[in-house]
Every structure is written in structure tokens, then in C-alpha cells.
């Protein structure tokens, strides 16, 4: 924490200085919230059956994380540390209510499919984790960048898993058939297992495997 506090003391750095760029690029791979920090798994796995759901979920998380980090960062000197968890939860819950109302109004069918998982953004560990680890100790602008980086890091894993599961599981992308009919005539069949919940875990497991074999410094002892 003290390290990050010192970081922002530097007088008037440019908007996209090296440090700030790092805030965005780090969470994309080497410090990815899902595969390295293991945060926010709950929702990441449950809504990756279709790309459309994964997209709207990522967009919601992006919105909540940016505005949440911004508000917490602006309030950071006013929040008494004993009740900070409750304050953070109230901020997230209000933002999630906004997201939920917007989804219900403009994309009701997606909102129906996401069902309880929109509400569960409140307890998404990425959001509470970033509030606690970053926004409570940093100025608003770096907090917003940090939010963008983490939300995009979350989104790309979600989309990759969703693409695998939707294409292999139902031969579709964003609800449209993409595999040519000829495939099925030759005897190809959709892998129904991919649609079932356990495969999401296994796909994420494989992504982690690939990522860690490429970058051995991330390997855990046990």
C-alpha cells in the first residue's frame, strides 16, 4: 500500500505516463484478475455459454468498476476504515441497480438469461478487490485507468471462454449459425458437453495452463 501511495506523489505527470500505461496493460496478462489473482470467477464461469451474455456481462462490469473505483477514490479520505466494507458494498449495489434497470429496459432477453448474475456483480471479488487494493489509496485518474485495465482483463478471458463454448457447443456465434451445413452432413456433431457448467472450469483451467507454460515465472509451487 505504501508503495502505491508514493507513486501518486509525483507532481503533474502526463495523463498517459509510463506508470499509468502499466496500470492498463498489467492486468491484461501478467496480473490478470481471473487467471492470476483468481478473482471474480463466480460470474465469469456461469455466463459464458453464449458470447452475447458474456459481452453484456463484461460491459456491465466495466461500467460498475470504472464508476465504483472513481467514487471510492474520490471518497477515500472520508470513509472511516471500520465501516469501509459496507460503504463499498453500498456504492457497488447502487451502480449495479442502475446497470440492472438499463439491461431490463434495453435488452430484456439478455437480462432474463443473466438472471441473478447481474445482481452478483455486487459480490464480484474483482470489484471489491480493486476498491480495497487500489481505489482506497490512489487518486481518481489512476483509479479509473486501473479499473479499465482490470475490467478489460476480465472481459477478454470471458469472451475467449464464451467463444470456445458457443462455437464448439452449439455451432453458433452471437446466436448465428456459423458452421456450414456441410459439416453436419458429413457427420459432425455439436459437443453438448461444452454447454454444461463443468466445461467452463476446464476451459479456464486450460487457459491458465497455456498462460503459465508461456511465462514460467507465474508457476506456483503447489
Amino acid at each position: 500500500m505504501s508503495e502505491s501511495l508514493e507513486k501518486v506523489k509525483a507532481p503533474s505527470e502526463p495523463l498517459f505516463s509510463k506508470k499509468n500505461k502499466k496500470l492498463i496493460t498489467d492486468p491484461l496478462s501478467d496480473n490478470n484478475p481471473i487467471t492470476i489473482q483468481v478473482l471474480g470467477i463466480c460470474s465469469a464461469l456461469a455466463i459464458t455459454v453464449q458470447v452475447e451474455q458474456a459481452f453484456f456481462m463484461s460491459a456491465s462490469v466495466l461500467f460498475v468498476l470504472i464508476f465504483g473505483n472513481l467514487s471510492i477514490s474520490l471518497l477515500r479520505n472520508l470513509i472511516p476504515s471500520r465501516v469501509r466494507i459496507i460503504v463499498q458494498l453500498v456504492v457497488v449495489a447502487s451502480l449495479v441497480i442502475i446497470v440492472n434497470e438499463v439491461l431490463q429496459a434495453f435488452v430484456p432477453d439478455v437480462s432474463e438469461k443473466l438472471s441473478v448474475f447481474v445482481g452478483l456483480i455486487i459480490t464480484n471479488c474483482i470489484i471489491m478487490g480493486r476498491f480495497e487494493a487500489f481505489a482506497m489509496g490512489n487518486k481518481p485518474w489512476p483509479s479509473v485507468l486501473d479499473a479499465v485495465g482490470n475490467a478489460v482483463g476480465y472481459a477478454w478471458i470471458l469472451l475467449v471462454v464464451a467463444i470456445f463454448r458457443e462455437v464448439l457447443g452449439s455451432g453458433k456465434f452471437w446466436g448465428m449459425e456459423i458452421l456450414p451445413q456441410g459439416f453436419y452432413e458429413m457427420g459432425y456433431m455439436n459437443n453438448n458437453l461444452m454447454i454444461l457448467p463443468p466445461m467452463a472450469l476446464i476451459v479456464v483451467g486450460i487457459i491458465i495452463w497455456i498462460q503459465r507454460s508461456k511465462n514460467p515465472s507465474l508457476v506456483e509451487e503447489h
Binding site: 463443468p198 486450460i206 495452463w209 497455456i210 514460467p216 506456483e220
Partner: peptide, 16 residues
């Protein structure tokens, strides 16, 4: 396998 240790293998076992 080293790259699967810890998190990776836990995910796969949970899937199974």
C-alpha cells in the same frame, strides 16, 4: 505438470 500446479489443476478437478 509445472504449469498446471496449484490453480490450474484445481480448476480441472472441480470441472471433473
Amino acid at each position: 505438470p509445472p504449469a498446471l500446479r496449484g490453480l490450474g489443476i484445481t480448476f480441472i478437478i472441480t470441472g471433473l
